[in-house]
Amino acid sequence: MSGTWISTRAWLMMLPLLVVMVAVIGWPLVDTVRLSFTDAKLVGTEGGFVGADNYVKMLTGSNFQRALITTSWFAVVSVAAEMVLGVLAALLLNQQFRGRTALRALMILPWALPTVVNATLWRLIYNPEYGALNAALTQLGLLDSYRSWLGEPGTALVALIVADCWKNFPLVALIALAALQAVPRDITAAALVDGAGSLNRFRFVIMPYLAGPLLVALVLRTIEAFKVFDIIWVMTRGGPANSTRTLSILVYQEAFSFQRAGSGASLALIVTLLVTILAVAYAALLRKAAGAS
């Protein structure tokens, strides 16, 4: 029974990793589930069993609903903008011109920056007293007086989305550029001879090569955007007037600012479930796309 022997050895070799995974992923997850059914505080009381109270409270509360809308809005708009910008940048960088290599290297920079550095940078740009954006817009005559872009509920989320796009579109561009370079030269030449204009060439000839890789980028970016925390925490902390409070910020506030470990845990699990649903849906999409090609 050599099969049994090999599989025993395989399990033995994986055991150390399994132990680590159970310790750092499995146990915290189980404990969070336990916590979510209690009214435990972050410090002090252990808390008692309260059934599904936390879930009901969170799901029916206006905070959660508003945060869900803010998160969805942030994710949809920033990811859509990143996809469009990324593909356009990739199409440009796929052309032959002087300085292309330098430009390709430069483009990766925003993505290579740590998020916190990027967020701090954009806070400077948006600064209501000496920010570059205010200076530029007033000097161009587009703005009468300096505004607090991150301080007004109407503009804060848009300002955040811009900062997030700037950081993340290079990833999409990079993936799209790699895909573009896999398009055989003969095929685009054939399309030229066949009389396809640039739009038709993109749609019928190039897009089929881009679709798969772009779907991967879409999955990665949407899940990331749905979990967004750091850029918002550094720039607005969810404010002003909770206008940029996404689900992750809400979880943090519930669990750590208000020290309600029980309801914070239930909220965290809800967010995890939502992201899991997204991931599964995308995985299905990817499988379908792979099957089609």
Binding site: P184, D186, I187, A189, V193, G195, A196, F204, V205
Partner: peptide
């Protein structure tokens, strides 16, 4: 190329 009244067959076939 599309207005030259030519058609081309490529070594790699270049089928879509």
């Amino acid at each position: 190329p599309k207005d030259r009244d030519i058609a081309m067959v490529f070594q790699s076939y270049a089928l879509y």
